[in-house]
Design a protein around this nucleic acid. Structure first.
Ligand SMILES: [Mn+2]
Ligand SMILES: [Mn+2]
Ligand SMILES: [Zn+2]
Ligand SMILES: [Zn+2]
Lengths: 174, 174
DNA sequence: TGTCAGATGATAATTATTATCATCTGACAA
DNA sequence: TTGTCAGATGATAATAATTATCATCTGACA
């Protein structure tokens, strides 16, 4: 198993490609194509640093000084919902603590944020030797498995609606 | 590679074991042993659901109705710092968005929250077949590698002070 | 063009977390 | 035991991130 930092140079072409399809994809998802949306996806695709809403907003405002931060939040959420963006983690909304110090990983329900421990036999042994990220001194790692829990799958609203994979919808509370 | 939900029944013994050592470990870390700390670690070890500070606080207040939520926040942070607890993700403090939809993983500097893409050849192929978490319908997964970036390692304060692995200190801003 | 569902901007509200500061208390020595 | 005091705590204010509201605007389609 081999690890490498992704080459930024490939990103330019990738971004151009995605931009070209974007308007079409919006309409396919039933969403109007607005200049704000164009500017926001463009800023996101132009970044390699996994920016926060605030950062995107600042970037967008260089050309469209009028856009509202609320719109940026809303739009990023929308992009996640239609699969044009993702969040780095589904668990950003509040700190979740773990008393289990044994090496293990987590399944997370992206709807209700339920978290369960999972052990993946062999994974840590396999990764142990491989993790060497240039520019970083690794301290540890953990796998986050995004999922829908059975409770959420059954109960409530129709199938997978709002923001499943990256969008991460707001509903209950653990 | 085989995945399984961790057996809760083993946790009771584990928790008892950890509680037995806890006071000693506090003193070893130069920390006074206070009833609040005992109650908070006990609540954390008694939980399998990766609770938030609020939840721990509610649990603790059943016996010590006076404890402050601020103390719970502070104490959980302290526990992470001395390695008696961990956070499920280092990236909980604000949503970070990603325009890169190609399958990939992330290195995160636990001090400045810098995030870089990494590709781990073979990992996804290996996991692809193995991810079957009972009670959950898996949608995807991603590996978070906790690390210290070179900038943080060099610049600033002495070696690893505040909260490295799980604690996650506040400093710059991406 | 005219219509209108949905998008936006301005702003208030909420939520999680951290900072302040006066007071208290474990740990240790006398 | 008692005295000392660094560090812990509780009450509360302050920040920071995100979401809700609502009046107004505008892409998409007829
Ligand atoms: Mn866990
Ligand atoms: Mn990424
Ligand atoms: Zn769920
Ligand atoms: Zn850093």
């Amino acid at each position: 198993m081999k690890l490498k930092i992704v080459n930024d140079s490939r990103r330019a072409a990738y971004a151009r490609e995605r931009m070209a399809e974007f308007a079409v994809r919006c309409r396919a998802a039933g969403l109007p194509v607005t200049p704000q949306r164009m500017a926001i996806i463009e800023a996101l695709l132009g970044a390699t640093d996994h920016p926060r809403a605030e950062k995107i907003c600042a970037e967008v405002r260089r050309r469209h000084p009028h856009v509202s931060l609320a719109t940026v939040h809303r739009t990023l959420e929308t992009l996640c919902r239609i699969g044009e963006a993702r969040k780095v983690t589904a668990l950003h909304d509040s700190a979740r603590y773990d008393g289990n110090l044994e090496p293990h990983h987590h399944v997370v329900c992206v709807r209700c944020r339920r978290i369960r421990d999972v052990e993946i036999a062999g994974l840590d042994a396999t990764l142990g030797g491989a993790i060497r990220a240039p520019g970083f001194k690794p301290l540890g790692w953990s796998l986050e498995i995004q999922a829908i829990c059975d409770d959420c799958a059954n109960s409530g609203e129709r199938a997978g609606r709002s923001s499943e994979t990256g969008g991460v919808g707001k509903t209950p509370r653990n």
